[in-house]
Amino acid sequence: MAPGFARSVSLPLSPSQKKASFHVRSVSLPCQSHPIISNLEEQIQTVQSWATNPERSSAWIVAGLVQIDLLHTALEDFLQLSQTQETLQQSASVDQVLDDMLQLVDFYGSFLSYIGTLKQCNSEMQSALRRQDGVQMASSLRSQLRVEKEMAQLASGFRRMTKCNHLSLSSDAKELEIVMEAICTTAFASMTVFMGVGALSAAASSTKMTSAMKSLKRLAINTSLKKRATDVESLERLEELEENIRDIEFSSERLLKSLINSRISLLNIRTSSW
């Protein structure tokens, strides 16, 4: 597996740094006045702007997922254009596009699985805090840290897809170029999302949470302290994380459906050329 990411990441902010992170193509098409094409170009630019201006809040992550979803809704409309379908039917590179779309679907399927595990860990940690169960607290915290590491490794899988130069595009394949730009942008933004979720989870299991766990371990030994109140601050942070995870899960499920629809449209275009 790829090495894990750190809990946070500094994303590029200057134009030169942006170019170093992912290649931004010129996606102008001959009939760029077409509203469907203009909308897709606008959605791509919006997602790129979001991904290069990190805030690392749950609201920011949800907003990013919504924007990626809008991008793929626009991509779905673009794939219905006859000019787009004709170009993709004649392109030998469409198979690579299909593979990339499948990988996006697989990544988000795994991401939702990790989100489910994080929800379970969070619920167990809240229960352990209320019951002052140091053993359960330690076990749940280890599970959460393991999920954070796996999520960072999953995010690293987007690295190849964030490079938009792995296809040899002919000068007249502008439709294919804009599809690849949409996929490239989705990969870069998704990597940012996955790392952002890991950072949110890590914040809930930070030094204060570790201190609370140590306190609970002491309670397990000193029976005279068992009635001590639970760590209110830590519990509030876990409850906040639970709500954040729920919002992120809902937006991710919607995005996964859009990704599946985009790939089905591409697959239909591919099979119609046989």
Rank of each mutant, 00 (worst) to 15 (best):
Q45W: 09
Q136V: 00
P30T: 07
E253P: 05
H72E: 08
A203E: 12
I61N: 04
N53E: 07
L256G: 09
L65C: 12
S38P: 04
G198P: 03
L88Y: 05
S205F: 01
A202S: 09
L167K: 10
E239W: 01
L219P: 04
V27Q: 04
S215D: 11
V66L: 04
S140Y: 14
A59I: 04
W60V: 00
A212E: 11
R130F: 06
D69Y: 04
A173N: 02
T52H: 06
Q85M: 00
L169K: 00
M125H: 07
E249K: 03
V9Q: 10
E253V: 14
K214E: 08
Q83T: 14
T46P: 05
S110W: 13
L65I: 03
F5T: 08
Y108G: 04
S273I: 06
K174W: 07
S170V: 03
L219N: 01
E41Y: 06
L11Y: 15
R228Q: 15
T210I: 10
L104V: 13
P54N: 03
S38Y: 07
L11R: 14
G157S: 02
C121L: 03
R25Q: 12
E42Y: 15
V105E: 15
T87E: 15
L235S: 10
S49H: 01
S110Q: 14
T207M: 10
D172K: 07
T52C: 00
S234Y: 07
E76P: 00
E177A: 02
L118G: 10
L98F: 02
T84Y: 13
P35V: 11
Y114S: 03
P15Q: 11
A204E: 04
E148V: 13
T186V: 02
G134P: 02
I115T: 15
A199G: 06
E177G: 01
L112C: 11
A63T: 01
A20Y: 13
M125A: 03
R25I: 06
L256Q: 14
F107P: 08
T223Y: 15
T117Y: 01
K119C: 04
